[in-house]
Computed example of a mutant assay.
Amino acid sequence: MKIKEVIVVEGKDDTTAIRRAVDADTIETNGSAVSKETIEKIKLAQEKRGVIVFTDPDYPGERIRHIISQAVPNCKHAFLPKDEAKPKNGKGIGVEHASPESIREALKEAQWMEKEAEEQIRKEDLITAGLIGGGNARERREKLGIKLKIGYTNGKQLYNRLKMFQITREQFLNAMEEVLQEEKR
């Protein structure tokens, strides 16, 4: 599978994992302190071929994603569920631990984040759905992020992520229904 866009990853191990899964070029940020030079490379890649940001599903990965989104608008974003980014034996979490199948699926589902979006889901909806506050809110957010292919977020960022990806009220309600059905099993 050949990927036209340049994939932005955190490090060389991520590049190795990407290349095991697909034929693609990467730019490595080399950690969460994304340099001006790296941002310039990403801008050029976005202008020429397009960019897919594919960072680890953890706080540093989200921080890198945010820095790039602010500096280089209109990038696509690929998300990997946390359970698919864990090593079989050991600690840590990252793209480098994902199977080639998981990487291909995440890249296939890559989406654009939109800055300005019409509000379809209110913050009150998130509270009512048990996504903010409560005993299993974190678990519900994680499952919702997988179903909507928008990645995991904390309660504060979920609302923004739903708006950025222009998730409709219907998509949100359908995904929440699936999450709640799974909880009943």
Rank of each mutant, 00 (worst) to 15 (best):
residue 1 M to W: 10
residue 1 M to L: 14
residue 1 M to H: 13
residue 1 M to S: 13
residue 2 K to F: 14
residue 3 I to V: 15
residue 3 I to D: 06
residue 5 E to Y: 04
residue 6 V to L: 05
residue 7 I to R: 07
residue 9 V to W: 00
residue 11 G to V: 07
residue 11 G to N: 05
residue 11 G to A: 02
residue 11 G to E: 05
residue 12 K to A: 00
residue 12 K to R: 14
residue 12 K to M: 01
residue 12 K to E: 09
residue 17 A to N: 11
residue 17 A to M: 07
residue 18 I to G: 06
residue 20 R to H: 13
residue 21 A to L: 09
residue 22 V to D: 03
residue 22 V to A: 02
residue 24 A to C: 01
residue 25 D to R: 10
residue 26 T to C: 14
residue 27 I to N: 03
residue 27 I to Q: 03
residue 30 N to F: 15
residue 30 N to H: 11
residue 30 N to Q: 08
residue 33 A to I: 02
residue 36 K to C: 05
residue 36 K to L: 12
residue 39 I to T: 02
residue 41 K to E: 07
residue 42 I to S: 05
residue 44 L to R: 15
residue 45 A to L: 04
residue 46 Q to K: 15
residue 46 Q to E: 15
residue 46 Q to A: 13
residue 46 Q to D: 04
residue 49 R to I: 11
residue 49 R to P: 08
residue 50 G to M: 14
residue 50 G to D: 14
residue 53 V to M: 05
residue 57 P to I: 01
residue 58 D to Q: 12
residue 60 P to V: 10
residue 60 P to I: 04
residue 61 G to K: 02
residue 62 E to Y: 09
residue 67 I to Q: 10
residue 67 I to L: 11
residue 68 I to N: 04
residue 69 S to I: 00
residue 70 Q to F: 03
residue 74 N to F: 07
residue 75 C to V: 11
residue 75 C to Q: 04
residue 75 C to W: 01
residue 79 F to D: 02
residue 82 K to G: 10
residue 84 E to G: 06
residue 84 E to R: 14
residue 89 N to P: 07
residue 92 G to M: 07
residue 95 V to Y: 04
residue 98 A to H: 01
residue 99 S to P: 00
residue 104 R to V: 08
residue 107 L to I: 08
residue 107 L to F: 04
residue 110 A to L: 03
residue 115 K to W: 12
residue 115 K to S: 12
residue 116 E to F: 10
residue 120 Q to V: 06
residue 121 I to Y: 02
residue 121 I to L: 03
residue 123 K to S: 09
residue 123 K to R: 13
residue 124 E to F: 05
residue 128 T to R: 12
residue 129 A to S: 07
residue 134 G to Y: 09
residue 134 G to R: 11
residue 134 G to K: 06
residue 136 N to M: 15
residue 136 N to T: 14
residue 138 R to S: 13
residue 139 E to V: 12
residue 140 R to L: 12
residue 141 R to F: 05
residue 141 R to P: 01
residue 142 E to F: 06
residue 143 K to M: 15
residue 145 G to K: 06
residue 145 G to T: 05
residue 146 I to P: 04
residue 147 K to I: 12
residue 147 K to L: 14
residue 147 K to M: 11
residue 151 G to T: 03
residue 154 N to W: 04
residue 155 G to L: 08
residue 155 G to F: 10
residue 157 Q to R: 15
residue 159 Y to K: 05
residue 159 Y to W: 14
residue 164 M to V: 03
residue 165 F to G: 08
residue 167 I to K: 01
residue 168 T to G: 03
residue 170 E to T: 13
residue 178 E to P: 04
residue 178 E to N: 01
residue 179 V to W: 00
residue 179 V to S: 04
residue 180 L to T: 13
residue 181 Q to Y: 08
residue 183 E to K: 11
residue 184 K to Y: 07
residue 184 K to I: 12
